[in-house]
Simulated assay, not measured.
Amino acid sequence: MSIDAPAARARALWQELAAAPDAAFGTPPRPGVFVSPDSSLAPPPWVGVVTIGDTALITAPTDRAAAVRTALDGLSTTRLTDPGTVTALLPVSDTLGPATLAYLTPDALRPPEPTGTPTECLPPGDAALRALSEEAGEEDAGESGLEEITSPVFVVRDGGTWVLAAAGYPHWPRDTAHLCVLTAPDARGRGLARQAASETTAHALAAGLLPQWRARPAASRRLASALGYRELGAQLSVRLV
């Protein structure tokens, strides 16, 4: 499968999440800007910017779309997801991101070398997963999205009851598997997250889903790249004054 195939599927996904009639990625260097109070590109009522390749899609609350379009028209996708650039052009009180958006083709998955510890499956919401979230802390657990998982959760234990790493995905629209990964602080750097994420990615591919990896931390981006994910875009959310 060519890399254009996941890019096209990714655009279709985010166009649906934009929740605006006729929402579409714009033609460079003009992003598509749409009024959508129900958009999932950003927390309501923020402005959401998503880029895939050299195209961009932006949603804004009803009364701010015109100003956003005027301020951001003509920018490259790199600058559209740069907080410094956007805050210099719009009255912004807060930003979220940017986060990279990476996708994986079925022939690109690179499973890790065995760690010697088997991978197990748990149902979403298992008590052992809640314990892992508590150990990781509110910020890391929230970043991971572990509580949103609807798939089987692939975990690596310490040989007992404690889960050291976990991965799974919620099933997003357009047959997309949004990867969620979390590792206990003391277990990082041992390849356990890669092991759990590899099993999760393989599960998604077997179901015909498009694996999506959204990441802000550099370590998460490196992990995705090691598995074969390719960064195709980015996401930025901004709250206007």
Rank of each mutant, 00 (worst) to 15 (best):
S2V: 15
S2D: 15
A5W: 13
P6L: 09
R9V: 00
R9W: 04
A10T: 15
R11P: 01
A12K: 03
Q15F: 01
A19L: 13
A20G: 06
D22G: 14
A24N: 12
F25M: 04
F25N: 05
G26A: 00
P28D: 15
P28Q: 11
P28A: 14
P28K: 14
G32P: 07
V33R: 05
V33C: 15
F34C: 11
S36I: 07
S36A: 15
D38P: 03
S39Q: 05
A42T: 04
A42L: 09
P43F: 14
P44D: 12
P44G: 11
W46I: 09
V50P: 09
T51I: 10
T51N: 07
D54K: 08
I58Y: 01
T59S: 09
T62M: 07
A66D: 12
A66N: 06
A67G: 14
R69I: 01
R69V: 00
D73A: 14
G74W: 09
S76E: 11
R79C: 11
L80G: 02
L80T: 01
T81K: 06
D82L: 05
D82P: 02
T85H: 02
T85L: 03
V86L: 03
L89C: 03
S93T: 15
D94W: 10
T95W: 03
A99Q: 12
A102M: 06
A102R: 01
T105R: 14
P106N: 07
R110V: 15
T117A: 15
T117H: 15
T119A: 13
T119Q: 01
E120F: 10
L122I: 03
P124C: 04
A127M: 09
A127V: 13
A127Y: 10
A128H: 06
L129V: 04
L132K: 05
E134G: 08
E135S: 09
G137T: 12
E138P: 11
E138W: 10
D140C: 02
E143I: 08
G145V: 07
G145S: 06
V153N: 02
V153M: 06
V156M: 04
V156D: 00
R157C: 03
D158S: 12
G159H: 06
T161N: 04
W162Q: 13
V163G: 02
L164F: 02
A166P: 03
G168T: 01
G168L: 04
P170M: 04
H171Y: 10
W172S: 13
P173L: 01
P173Y: 02
T176N: 02
A177F: 05
H178V: 08
V181L: 11
P185I: 10
R188S: 10
R190Q: 13
L192A: 00
A193N: 01
R194D: 06
Q195L: 15
A197R: 00
A197H: 01
A202S: 14
A202Y: 11
A202P: 09
H203D: 15
A206R: 14
G208M: 03
R214D: 08
A215V: 09
A215N: 10
P217H: 08
P217T: 12
A219D: 14
S220Q: 02
S220V: 02
L223P: 05
L223V: 08
L227T: 06
E231D: 12
E231M: 12
L236T: 06
